[in-house]
Nucleic acid binder design. Structure first.
Lengths: 300, 300
DNA sequence: TACAATCGGTGCAAAAAACGCATCACTCGG
DNA sequence: CCGAGTGATGCGTTTTTTGCACCGATTGTA
């Protein structure tokens, strides 16, 4: 869009940090770019950049303007998506920020279902921890977020909430598979493979451990849920996951069971979008499909 | 803003209904305007106007685009207001859609209070019935709405709800002022001065009348609450109002009392904004002041 | 039926805006 | 003190936008 050119140039300067670098990226001369920025600031009424000896940086007014630019861009995308939809075209792009637990089974399946009926739609899957996912929504870089136990919940519109008990993952044949109910204290006597503090599961476990006067001393701390799942088969250890990332039947080599609810409270797996934002048609429809899928999971 | 010029021109064409008329309004040639519209449609990817023998009319895609244009414009105004605010300037414009009942006392007083500390802020007071007020919010032509018993309540974010009993207004010396509690059936034996069906008070009364098997047969039906208040002193008649539009002490020539709650349920006077919209600084602050003022009214 | 008054669309030249080049003033690190 | 980096500016050139004259089509009216 031609009339958005000024905004693109402003964003380029923000990214590059200086007019001259941004000029290269945008195939313009530094002088031309400089004058467009100056011209915009004059129209806007206030400077939006700080001029530093080493380049340009947004000032507070510029930060506010950037929010507007992002909103404006995504809202235009929404309109174009809706127009395409009423023209009968089924195109679009869906961007999701999600927890790792959704990667192995849930999301691939849901995306395949959606694309079967809407082959023109493309996807971006952004793996984000809880805080990052919310920032993604706020900056319009993701349309939907599907995360365990988000942090702030301001600017976050909950579309569906699915309770998820924390499951322990242990090697096949472990005594943890034998007890009537699985208690947290039994797990803590084993070697622990835990996600880092950025993740909801770790958060839930920390609270639960504190409540019974224990501390978590992980043998392995990792950001990869995949590693957690597979490491327990290498060394006799216990990992923790939410069931949506685990097959109903035990995988080869390891088993998993929910921890007692009185020990570890279930977490909330939340599907949400940015508060008050009107999503593009494709994203909104996919969101509805996810809600339906989560509902059937909850009914099981 | 220069880069908004295309949008202004599109709006001008929508208003004028033809390119040639819009060209006069915008001090342009019809040919130049024509080519800008065509150029935009090409960039946008779809036509936004229907070409009729008598002029231009928005097609569905154009309607969607107009929503975007309005959002974009008001969001820019919000940003500029916020920037002005962080620059220490206290300027801005506040647009309110409100019921007539707010005009005599409540709003003038609140506006005066606000302007005493923010003399740079200007106001638009748009008198609207219940449905119009909500449309005003949805089209961004008002920032805040203060109305009795709104109709849809979709896209409407309630900031505060104040219960308002329906008061009867009668001439001084009327027997209606003497009874212990004022019943609806007593009022219906007098001549009635009622607002039209668009207003919440009429709606509440219609329901109440139906409940006791009566129908309302007004002697005078009007859209002016002012006329209702004053007519009862001319002919021995009964009017109805909500107390926020009436002075606590009886005015010269007429008195007013609440109807029994078991006869007529109290209406909700709602202060609200469009759902999910970030208001300009001035409007948001004035909204907070209104909430505080309504709270003290409720406490009385 | 003829005609005037609309309407949107288009070719072409003039006016306006944007751009590229060369250059200045300034800051910073070595 | 010097070179490499920054943003800003004057000026000639290029690109874009605009105005004018005109076309074809439709509609209401004499």
């Amino acid at each position: 869009m031609r009339y958005l050119r000024t905004f693109e140039l402003i964003e380029a300067v923000v990214r590059a940090g200086s007019i001259r670098k941004a000029a290269e990226d945008t195939n313009l001369t530094a002088s031309a770019l400089n004058r467009r920025i100056q011209g915009f600031e004059q129209e806007f009424g206030w400077p939006i950049f700080e001029r530093l000896p080493r380049g340009m940086r947004l000032n507070p007014a510029g930060e506010l303007l950037m929010q507007h630019i992002r909103l404006q861009r995504t809202d235009l995308a929404r309109v174009q998506s809706q127009v395409a939809d009423l023209s009968g075209e089924r195109r679009g792009h869906i961007s999701i920020a999600c927890s790792q637990a959704l990667l192995p089974y849930f999301l691939p399946e849901q995306i395949a279902i959606y694309r079967a009926s809407h082959p023109g739609v493309t996807f971006s899957i952004n793996v984000r921890d809880r805080a990052q996912a919310e920032r993604d929504l706020a900056s319009y870089s993701s349309d939907l977020a599907l995360v365990l136990e988000p942090v702030h919940l301001v600017e976050f519109d909950v579309l569906y909430a699915l309770p998820q008990r924390v499951h322990a993952v242990y090697p096949a044949g472990s005594p943890l598979g034998d007890t009537l109910t699985l208690r947290l204290r039994d797990c803590l006597n084993h070697r622990l493979v835990l996600p880092t503090a950025a993740y909801g599961v770790r958060n839930l476990l920390e609270h639960a451990a504190t409540a019974i006067g224990r501390t978590l001393t992980p043998t392995i701390e990792t950001e990869s849920f995949d590693l957690i799942r597979h490491y327990v088969t290498q060394e006799n250890a216990v990992g923790f996951q939410i069931p949506i990332g685990l097959k109903p039947a035990a995988d080869a080599g390891f088993g998993h069971r929910p921890l007692a609810e009185r020990d570890v409270r279930p977490g909330q797996l939340l599907l949400g979008q940015m508060k008050g934002r009107a999503l593009p048609v494709a994203s909104a429809k996919f969101g509805q499909q996810l809600v339906a899928a989560l509902e059937t999971l909850a009914a099981q």
